[in-house]
């Protein structure tokens, strides 16, 4: 596998593509009757896709010997960026900057509270993603903080599920995938504990 020879810039370029297409659609009128909703939803979905992609990196290495380790950080940062843009689209375009209602809604609507929790985690992880932050925190503490991603992913998916009146199929499927990805970590952690106990 020569994939890891690719510079991380490639991931950034690919990662900017959904945003570029979105901007293109805004100006070319490709968004349909309610562009506000389309923009908000597409940014949210893209954030989830990158988040799930970042969770695939370790299993790919361990199970398929495909080493994409150096792309994990840009994938996570892309997810955090799209999630932040999603919040921005909501606050500016959807809520029309009605701050009072916006804050009340985040506090009162479970799906928004959950989305906010996911976003806060993603932003903490983004803020502590640099090499300098790893050095400052020490590998142990840094690792503990970054395991919060295992919480952020299901939170983001519950947020997606609860935003709908009916159980939608796609997020249920992705939630299933996330359950498997997190299940693998649990299994590995148990195997490690077992190994160190004997």
């Amino acid at each position: 596998m020569q994939l890891r020879r690719l510079p991380t810039g490639v991931v950034w370029a690919l990662g900017a593509l959904p945003l570029a297409v979105l901007v293109w659609d805004v100006f070319a009128g490709g968004l349909g009757v309610d562009p506000v909703r389309d923009i908000e939803h597409r940014l949210g979905r893209t954030a989830v896709y990158f988040l799930v992609a970042s969770l695939c990196v370790t299993p790919l290495l361990r199970l398929a010997r495909i080493n994409l380790m150096k792309f994990r950080r840009p994938l996570g940062l892309l997810s955090a960026s799209y999630a932040a843009l999603h919040l921005l689209a909501w606050a500016v375009l959807d809520m029309g900057l009605r701050w009072e209602q916006a804050l009340k809604d985040i506090a009162r609507r479970p799906y928004l509270t959950i989305g906010m929790a996911a976003l806060v985690i993603l932003l903490i992880l983004a803020a502590t993603s640099s090499n300098a932050a790893i050095r400052r925190l020490g590998a142990r503490r840094w690792g503990a903080i970054h395991r919060l991603v295992y919480l952020a992913a299901p939170l983001a998916l519950f947020h997606w599920l609860l935003a709908h009146k009916i159980w939608p199929g796609k997020p249920l499927l992705i939630l299933g995938a996330v359950a498997i990805l997190l299940g693998l970590r649990l299994a590995w952690a148990r195997a490690r504990r077992f190994a160190s106990n004997t």
Binding site: V33, P35, V36, L93, D94, G96, R98, Q101
Partner: peptide, 11 residues
């Protein structure tokens, strides 16, 4: 939100 109010139509 009134549909058709545009990107910055607000609420």
């Amino acid at each position: 939100r009134r549909i058709g109010a545009g990107l910055l139509g607000g609420r």
